[in-house]
Amino acid sequence: NWINRFGRGQGPGWTPALTGRRLIRWINHALFMLRGTEAEQSDVFYRSLEQQTRFLSKRWRASAPGLPRFEALTGLIYAGLSLEGLEELADPAIKALARECASQIDAEGGLPTRNPEELLAVFTLLTWAAAALSDAGRSTPKEHLTAIERIAPTLRSLRHADGALARFHGGGRGMEGWLDHALAAAKVKTRQPDGLAMGYARLSAGRTSVIVDAAPPPGGSASSNAHASTLAFELTSGRRPLVVNCGSGASFGLEWRRAGRATPSHSALSLVGYSSARLAEPDRHTGEEALIHGPRHVPVEIGEAADGLRFEGGHDAYLRSHGLTHARRLELTSDGRGLSGED
């Protein structure tokens, strides 16, 4: 099994993020996993949990900011609260998670990566950690609770009519029911006020949802999975996605991943296959390819049309290369049965 092959702290699985993720699963399913096992096997299991917890307590800072660090810290909190003799490891992790919430979750409940599925994963981890703290009779830091309260309405804005997430910036639809289950577990009922949610505009009427990427793409280290998708949109009617982006091609290899990040892989305007942003040279240490030379100015206006809702937006990504700006108008009828648009 994994403990015998890799349990000494070397080999696959010994990154802070993956260790945190594994600790959460092992602790949650410990009773099932240990059912019918001998005492000796049970001891091996718990010794491995302790070893992984101590590894995390020393290495969580090596995880990248964002989802990997949220995974590492949540796993450390779970283990510190659940395993006897490791309680002293929980308090530093609780404080560190609160700091991450304050630095990574903005006032609108978004992440720097603008990846909807990643935001859902972070939201799930935060609700799990808050529940674990409550079960242990511990208070949850204000920054932690505030992050949950900010993220929930943003996720509602990124939810299509079929319950799936919008597919942008490396994120997928999410597992069936995951989004609704996470929102129900958080018990946060507020909705996003009118305007953008993590840089996305939403038009919704009847059983139809339209979600538009209405902001510049992420920059810097947050852009390693970003897509050249400015002003791209997705349309879902009832249970049927009608207009979608291709999503991440990472599971098919590097070339497909690059292709998936290009503008032609989105419901957006490209000029003779030219994307609205470019991929930088791979980082010599990580191999990641940042997104560069994207649009700088993305004006947006959302309002009412004669028979429904209107989105108007533009960007200047093609100004340097072609001397052109792109403007897009979308109008959704009040019954949700008609969408018209113009580029």
Rank of each mutant, 00 (worst) to 15 (best):
L179Y: 04
R261D: 02
P153G: 08
A98L: 09
G177L: 09
T53A: 12
E71W: 03
G13D: 04
W60L: 03
G247V: 04
R240W: 08
G66M: 08
A280T: 05
E301L: 10
D135C: 04
A197C: 05
P68G: 09
W128G: 02
T19A: 14
A164T: 14
E331H: 00
A72T: 05
A184H: 10
N4Q: 12
G163Q: 08
A226H: 00
S251V: 06
N245T: 06
G172E: 09
F233Y: 15
G219F: 03
F45M: 10
A205W: 02
D213V: 14
E176W: 08
G177C: 11
Y46L: 09
R278S: 14
V298I: 04
E176I: 07
D343W: 12
G314C: 08
I105M: 08
G137A: 07
P92S: 10
T333M: 01
L183F: 04
L196Y: 07
D180H: 03
I105A: 09
I24M: 12
K187L: 06
Y274R: 13
H297W: 14
R239Q: 13
R202L: 05
Q41L: 12
A205K: 01
E289R: 01
R296D: 13
S42E: 15
T146A: 14
R337I: 00
A182H: 04
P295N: 11
L126I: 04
P68W: 09
A214L: 11
C246S: 11
G199T: 06
S157F: 00
S248Y: 00
T230D: 11
S57R: 06
T124Y: 00
L125K: 10
P282A: 10
A222K: 03
R320M: 06
S229R: 11
A226Q: 04
N1K: 05
V212I: 15
A96R: 07
N4P: 01
R337H: 10
G199H: 05
D335C: 07
R207Q: 13
P193I: 08
H227I: 02
D316P: 03
G195T: 05
K58G: 06
T190P: 00
L155Y: 05
S157C: 13
E87M: 03
V300M: 10
S270N: 14
I292A: 11
I77M: 08
R35M: 06
S48C: 07
E176D: 13
I292H: 10
L119N: 08
R284M: 11
R258M: 01
G314V: 03
I3A: 09
H322V: 00
L279I: 01
R329A: 12
G303C: 11
G85A: 05
P12H: 09
L319Y: 07
S251K: 06
L235V: 15
K58F: 07
G137Q: 09
D283H: 15
R167L: 07
H169C: 03
D343S: 12
G303K: 11
A185P: 00
A232T: 07
G80W: 05
T15R: 12
E301H: 13
Q10R: 14
N225S: 13
K189E: 15
